[in-house]
Write a protein that binds this DNA or RNA. Structure first.
Ligand SMILES: [Mn+2]
Ligand SMILES: [Mn+2]
Ligand SMILES: [Zn+2]
Ligand SMILES: [Zn+2]
Lengths: 132, 132
DNA sequence: ATGATAATGATAATGATTATCATTCTTGCC
DNA sequence: GGCAAGAATGATAATCATTATCATTATCAT
């Protein structure tokens, strides 16, 4: 059904998790996802959800963002982007700013750093919450 | 001795914590700081260290960065900056990139967001770890 | 100095995530 | 198809950072 990388064993549970994430556009944390799966009749043990998410993330089949104290996952089939996080309602919006990405490389070079990843979180009030 | 904002009550413990942070150039988490204080003969209960750091941070007398799962604190008397984090040795370097800051404002505007804060973490290998 | 109020510290509680371990799948192979 | 080896699962205990409790103590305005 899906070509899974060699490092990952295909299991129905992982497939369920992967499909669920790919089918949505949200940023899920483990508990939320477990609840959603349960609500849709596909209950999976919470420990397995945690492990499945970590495995899929490591295999590059889904992406993750560390938001404050919890890790959230989203589908990986979109290009790299960063996030705007509303501190009022929790909404998460995405953006891409090529120039910022490029300037990060420059900063790294100036500091003798070899970049392996980055995370830019912009906190604030979303349009809705500003007007509320 | 120090002009403390009205919102914060001066206590010897908070003063100790503040001085310690200001005297160093590092990014401390609560446990590390408690241990360091203890080692220097000024033991402060761990709960008080947590509360003291949070209070000083809220008052703007020190600054904080959420690094992965733990919160780290540093002295606030430097201008805003972001961080380069070595995933190998844990070293944290600082940088300022005005253009990136400005582009963030632009991104926010484009999305109807009102920025209240941001955090840019660049992960990778520091010069030392690259050559090791 | 005195009292109102906030801070402290020992410790319990929380919340997210990981570790255990017995049981159940997957997959390669006959 | 049937089987064994090894990985995955799930219930639950364990961690780890941080916060909450609550009795005691310190601070600050009067
Ligand atoms: Mn996203
Ligand atoms: Mn810093
Ligand atoms: Zn909002
Ligand atoms: Zn390093």
């Amino acid at each position: 059904m899906i070509i899974i990388l060699a490092m990952l064993k295909l299991t129905s549970h992982r497939e369920t998790i992967l499909k669920f994430i790919n089918a949505s556009n949200a940023h899920w944390d483990a508990e939320e996802l477990a609840r959603a799966l349960s609500d849709s009749g596909k209950t999976i043990g919470i420990a397995t959800v945690y492990r499945g998410l970590a495995a899929l993330d490591e295999a590059g089949l889904i992406a993750s963002v560390q938001l404050g104290d919890r890790k959230r996952y989203e589908c990986a089939d979109k290009k790299h982007h960063d996030h705007l996080v509303c501190t009022e309602c929790g909404a998460i919006e995405e953006f891409v700013q090529a120039k910022i990405e490029q300037l990060q490389e420059q900063v790294a070079k100036e500091n003798g750093f070899e970049i392996t990843g980055h995370q830019l979180l912009i906190f604030g009030l979303c349009r809705g919450c500003r007007n509320a």
